[in-house]
C-alpha cells in the first residue's frame, strides 16, 4: 500500500517550478504511484503566482488538493509560501526559499512586503525548512539550479529512494547541465536546516 502524498509547489513565473514537478512526477511514477498533476497556465505566466498541485496515491481521483490537505508545501518564493499556508496540513511540512520577489503592488508602494514571513510560518507550522536556495545553488555552480536545491530538500522527506530521484533528475535535465543539477540536488538533500 503506497502512502498518499499531496504536494503543492508555488513560485513566480520563471522560477522553475515546472521542471521540479516533472522530476517529482517521474520519481513517483517509477515508485509505482498513480499521479495527478494540476497546473494553471494562462494569466499566471505573466508574472503571477504559479501553483502546481501534485497528488500521489494508489488511485488518485481529484487533481486538486483541498485546503488543509497538503503534506508538503514547497515554496520557491517567501510570499507565495505565506499565501499557501491555509493549504498545509496541521502536521505537514513547509519548505520555503528565503528569496523575495516583490509583486507589483509592492513595487508601486500600494502594499508592503511582509517583514516577518518566516517567523510567522515557524510559529504556525510544525515542520519548517527555510533555505537560501539561491546561495546554495550558486555554491554548486549555477543560481538557476535553485529549483533543484529546493527539490532536494523536499526529496529526503518523501518515500522514494535516493537513486530513484537521481534517475528522474537525469531523465529531465539536459546532459550538459546534469552535473550542476546533481550537485544542487545533493546539496538540498543533505541540507541541515531546521
Amino acid at each position: 500500500m503506497l502512502k498518499p502524498v499531496d504536494i503543492l509547489m508555488v513560485g513566480v513565473g520563471g522560477q522553475g517550478t515546472i521542471l521540479a514537478s516533472k522530476i517529482l512526477a517521474r520519481a513517483a511514477l517509477e515508485t509505482g504511484y498513480d499521479i495527478k498533476v494540476s497546473e494553471i497556465h494562462g494569466m499566471a505566466q505573466r508574472g503571477g503566482s504559479v501553483v502546481t498541485q501534485v497528488r500521489l496515491g494508489e488511485k488518485v481521483f481529484s487533481p486538486l488538493i483541498p485546503a488543509g490537505g497538503a503534506d508538503v508545501v514547497l515554496a520557491f518564493e517567501k510570499l507565495e509560501g505565506l499565501r499557501l499556508m491555509p493549504f498545509l496540513k496541521p502536521d505537514g511540512a513547509m519548505i520555503i526559499n528565503e528569496q523575495e520577489i516583490p509583486p507589483v503592488p509592492v513595487l508601486v508602494g500600494a502594499a508592503e512586503y511582509p517583514a516577518d514571513i518566516i517567523e510567522y510560518i515557524r510559529s504556525a507550522a510544525r515542520h519548517v525548512v527555510a533555505v537560501d536556495a539561491l546561495a546554495v545553488a550558486e555554491k554548486c555552480g549555477n543560481v538557476k539550479a535553485a529549483n533543484v536545491v529546493l527539490l532536494g530538500v523536499m526529496a529526503r522527506r518523501l518515500p522514494f529512494a535516493r537513486e530513484v530521484w537521481e534517475r528522474a533528475l537525469a531523465g529531465c535535465v539536459p546532459a550538459k547541465l546534469l552535473e550542476v543539477n546533481k550537485a544542487a540536488f545533493a546539496a538540498g538533500y543533505e541540507y541541515k536546516g531546521i
Partner: peptide, 22 residues
Amino acid sequence: TAAEGSARPEAPAAPGRPPVMC
C-alpha cells in the same frame, strides 16, 4: 484543519501578485 482551527496565529496580510506586463 489547523488552518481553520484556532491552532495557528493570525497571518500577516499577503499582498496579491496580479499578472503584469513583462
